[in-house]
Design a protein around this nucleic acid. Structure first.
Lengths: 383, 383
DNA sequence: CATTGCGATTAGATCGATCTAACAGCCGGC
DNA sequence: GCCGGCTGTTAGATCGATCTAATCGCAATG
């Protein structure tokens, strides 16, 4: 019996010789109470072992401190970093996160949203389950604000916080172009997801800007998993006009791709250039460390939470606003830039890349004892 | 204003021409209401667009459906799998998880626990922050049950749900012994944590049972990270009486250790046998796939939640109970068992291992294009 | 001296569902 | 015809903090 038998404001009031209203004011830190009285009340709280009852306060004030966090897949490190970013921000703001992991199950997503509304959440940060459509998010008119995180939904008016997918992917492709690559593949995941579409657009942007042809033969769709990335790389290597580099939909696929190379005795960076997306903590721990786009997932979680909190004060803000984060190329070794001595910027070092392209044709190498020196200054940013 | 201006039971009652008490009974699915009346009420609920107000119900019934989930580090895949296991179970039971990620910060842990008590949680699943001592968990007498997950705390009477650390590590070491290894290292993390102590004990058990000496020279303490695992491996390889195999505290360290080998052109399994612990999803995706101990993290999360729910009904159960999960050796490639053609059980194939030990001395290999065939039947269990 | 002003405190109503105890209606039995 | 038992429903109190509007002292002011 948790709640029964707990001391109440009345107990404190009696102990301190004041009224319940006074106690309530002290609880909320009002400055309208004389300091000595407040001290007296606080001492009484200690004496009776008081524990604040938020259910009661919530009822009367018609306001909770709950915020819903609906995550599509928390075991995915991308979403757990996002979730921690949200949680950190909510914690700093004195808000209490209610968690639901939908596991990409639409029915479950619907249920947990309902439960959150019943609990009077101030708002919800929603990373939509795969397949969510606008009609799944038809909320009652009394519903609190909902903000979409990381996945946009077609025809949905809800505010959105996400990464600069297009710009980031464009930077990734541009980096490979600058390193001299001309046949650059795109290893994609689920083409039905807007995130992927945007990243693919960015990849196309960069190729077109450089006067390179965008060809369907360079696009390898696969499952979003390391196995998927591995398969994409295997298919790419079996192509007649074999690409020499790839922009990957995300780090998971990129890591799988580096694994496919390793299994053939090849090395990402030396034999095939790979760039990922997300900058998961796994990316820097990969072998070789992954060149990737840092979309500051943790920070974006924080921005989502802040944007949501902002909506509390601005009940009917303009619909369909979008906050897009920055993107930053993090150059490590999987792209081969370290072999040129520096992260090439706006320069086409075709010659050194040509040899690399040649190497990519061979099956293995001899006597390579330490193919990648692991530098401690591993991060080199190209805006 | 989420809660204000929502329809209440009174609105439903008026609409349906019944009393508020009747509506309340229908809401809770009581069988004491005539089916036709119930239908009438449910229709009225639709008509007025009713959303249940749990804050009000919680107040009167002095019972919420909240359960606290305090995680020490959600970005760690081990804990995110645990958290998802807990969340899945709570969801099935109609309970609402309140999440807090302490980030291993004791002060924050204290604060979120307080907040959870204020919100009237039915109980808390707590994965304690590093450094938590019994005195940090002195809860008020009215506090709901707390169950410790995965980390025990010295001198703390709280019930505990955890893995079979000792048994699992013993199986890991035994497996290496069966494969013929005689100099088996232990790559450890934070020796102050009971989890690590137990795994170390299990390792010692197996060595002693096999008549092997347990030597401090075989223990390499390091940071719990991939970099830490890499360093441990490098130190181990630099030892005069170089070990040929290692039991790692967890998969993270084990993966770092395989990376250290890869950076020298060596291969886990071929040149040095490695066994991890936890069976993270990263373990099977590692290159080479990691032999490890599956402690069924997701399932243990579920069992923690169930054990907690059990305590709701049994207010003053015997203190200090412990639920220990199973452990299962998952044989993949990092231990080298695949090279012997089968997962060796109770056999000492010293000869083939001796050559392996010899290989470990050389720097690299020539023309190895596909050192590890990736089999689709990758999991082979030895109880 | 009455009045205004202001800081500090308080009585009592209130939030919306639940709980308790009671009630109407109806049947069957002695 | 009265009573006990049963079903289905309900009036009114209740949970514990907050909110509103009022009150009390006390000092300054006209």
């Amino acid at each position: 019996m948790p709640l029964r038998s707990r001391a109440t404001v009345l107990d404190i009031a009696r102990q301190a010789g004041v009224s319940r209203a006074t106690v309530s004011l002290v609880l909320r830190g009002s400055d309208r109470i004389k300091p000595e009285t407040a001290d007296k009340v606080r001492k009484a709280m200690q004496d009776v072992g008081y524990v604040y009852n938020r259910a009661a306060a919530n009822l009367r004030s018609a306001r909770t401190s709950f915020v819903g966090m609906v995550m599509s897949d928390l075991t995915n490190p991308f979403f757990s970093e996002l979730a921690v970013g949200i949680e950190d921000s909510l914690y700093r703001q004195g808000l209490t996160p209610i968690l639901a992991n939908t596991n990409d199950d639409l029915a479950r997503q619907e249920q947990v949203l309902k439960s959150m509304l019943e609990n009077g959440v101030l708002g919800v940060v929603l990373s939509p389950a795969r397949g969510t459509e606008a009609r799944h998010l038809s909320l009652p008119p009394s519903a609190p604000p909902v903000i979409l995180a990381m996945r946009k939904i077609d025809g949905c008016e809800l505010p959105y916080v996400g990464q600069d997918n297009r710009g980031g992917a464009s930077k990734a492709a541009r980096h490979l172009i600058d390193l001299g690559h001309r046949r650059i593949a795109f290893f994609g995941g689920d083409a039905a997801i807007t995130t992927q579409q945007e990243r693919y657009e960015g990849y196309c942007d960069a190729l077109r800007d450089a006067g390179l042809e965008v060809s369907p033969a360079l696009v390898f769709e696969t499952e979003v998993s390391k196995d998927g990335g591995q398969q994409a790389m295997e298919r790419a290597l079996a192509t007649p006009a074999r690409p020499t580099a790839a922009v990957c939909y995300n780090d998971i696929i990129a890591i799988g791709a580096t694994r496919a190379l390793a299994m053939r005795g090849l090395h990402a960076g030396n034999d095939f250039a790979i760039v990922g997306f997300d900058n998961l903590s796994e990316a820097k721990d990969n072998f070789p460390p992954l060149t990737t786009i840092d979309a500051e997932t943790h920070a974006m979680g924080g921005r989502a939470a802040e944007a949501l909190v902002h909506l509390f004060d601005t009940p009917h803000a303009p619909k369909s606003t979008a906050i897009i984060g920055g993107s930053r190329l993090v150059v490590r070794q999987s792209c081969g830039a370290h072999l040129t001595g520096r992260a090439a910027r706006n320069s086409n070092e075709v010659s050194s890349q040509a040899s690399m392209t040649d190497r990519a044709g061979r099956a293995g190498r001899c006597g390579a004892s330490a193919p990648h020196a692991r530098s401690t200054m591993e991060e080199d940013n190209v805006a």
